Simulated assay, not measured.
Amino acid sequence: MRYPQGGGLTDAERTARERVRLQAVTGFEGGDKNREIAAALRVSERSVERWRRQWREEGLDGVASKGSPGRPRLSDIQIEKLERELERGPLTHGWSDQRWTLARVKTMIGRLFHVSYTVEGTWRLLRRHGWSWQQPARRAIERDDDAVELWKREVWPRVRAPRRSTTPGWSSRTKPASR
C-alpha cells in the first residue's frame, strides 16, 4: 500500500533552515548568549551550541548547508521502474509466493540496477517513496469460516464452564474458622 508522505527536506525547506543558522551567526557576532539566540529563533540551545562551535572552527562554511545527508543512489526514472516492478509482484520475479520482503526487494534492486542496498536502506528507500509494510493475516488453508461460526454459536455455549453464581456463598474469607 502506498502513502503520499514522502520523506526528507525539500530544497526550499533546507534553504529556510540555513537562513536560521545564518541568523544565529549574526547573534554570535553580536555577542549574544546561546539561550537568547535559541529563544529568538525558536530552536534548541543544543543546536545553537553546535552551530557556534562549527562557526568558531570553520567560519561561515561550518554552518552552511551540506545538502541532503543521504543522496539517493537511484534516479527518478529508476524509482519509477522499481515501483512498476513491485506492482507486478514477486511471482513474476521468480519467488514462490506473493510476499515482498525487504530482502527480496533488496535482491531485485541489485538485479535490476546493479546497486547494493542494505535491508535497512531498502526500507528507508521504500518508506521515502510512500510504501508501507504489510503483514498478511495467517489463516489455515483448510479453514471453514462458516463451520467456525456455527461452532461458536452452538457448541461453545454448551462446552464452556457455567459462570459462578452471584449469590453469597462460602468462600475462604467468609467461612467460619474451625475450633
Score class of each variant (00 low, 15 high):
E45V: 14
L126P: 02
I109H: 01
S75G: 07
G59Y: 00
I37P: 05
P69N: 12
V25F: 03
H114A: 15
I37N: 13
L74T: 04
T122Y: 01
E87Q: 11
G67I: 05
A137W: 00
D61N: 11
P90C: 03
E13D: 10
R99I: 08
L91Q: 08
E29V: 12
R53C: 03
A16V: 00
H114C: 07
R50K: 13
R35L: 08
W133S: 15
R128E: 12
A24C: 11
Q23S: 14
G130K: 01
E36N: 13
R84I: 05
P136G: 05
G110M: 08
L82H: 05
K106F: 06
H129Y: 03
R56H: 04
A39R: 09
W51S: 08
G110C: 10
M108D: 01
R14Y: 00
W95T: 07
A24T: 06
S47E: 11
R127E: 07
G31N: 12
R17L: 10
R128T: 15
L102G: 06
Q23I: 12
G70H: 15
P69F: 08
G27I: 01
R73A: 15
R53V: 07
A64E: 14
A40C: 00
R14G: 01
K106V: 10
W133A: 13
G67A: 07
T26F: 11
V43R: 14
V48K: 02
W133Y: 11
R127N: 12
Q98G: 04
K106H: 15
T101M: 08
Y117V: 06
T15S: 03
R111L: 15
E85L: 00
I77V: 10
A40H: 01
V115G: 06
G89I: 02
V119I: 13
R104C: 05
R128K: 15
G70A: 14
L125H: 06
E80H: 02
R53D: 11
P69C: 13
L41P: 07
R52G: 06
R46K: 12
E57G: 00
R53M: 09
P69W: 14
W123Y: 15
T101Y: 06
R42T: 15
G94S: 02
P72T: 08
S47K: 12
W51F: 05
L102H: 09
L60T: 13
G30W: 05
E45W: 09
L60D: 13
T92L: 09
R19D: 07
T101F: 02
S65T: 08
L74N: 02
A64H: 14
G67L: 03
A40P: 00
T101G: 07
V48T: 10
W133E: 14
Q98T: 14
H114K: 13
R73G: 14
E13A: 11
D97W: 00
I37Q: 06
G121L: 11
R111A: 13
W95Q: 01
G89D: 13
V20M: 10
K81Q: 14
T26G: 12
A40D: 01
L102E: 04
S116K: 12
L60I: 09
E80Y: 01
R88C: 07
G94F: 02
R128P: 03
K81G: 06
W55M: 00
P72A: 12
R124P: 02
E83N: 09
R17E: 08
Q78S: 10
V63Y: 00
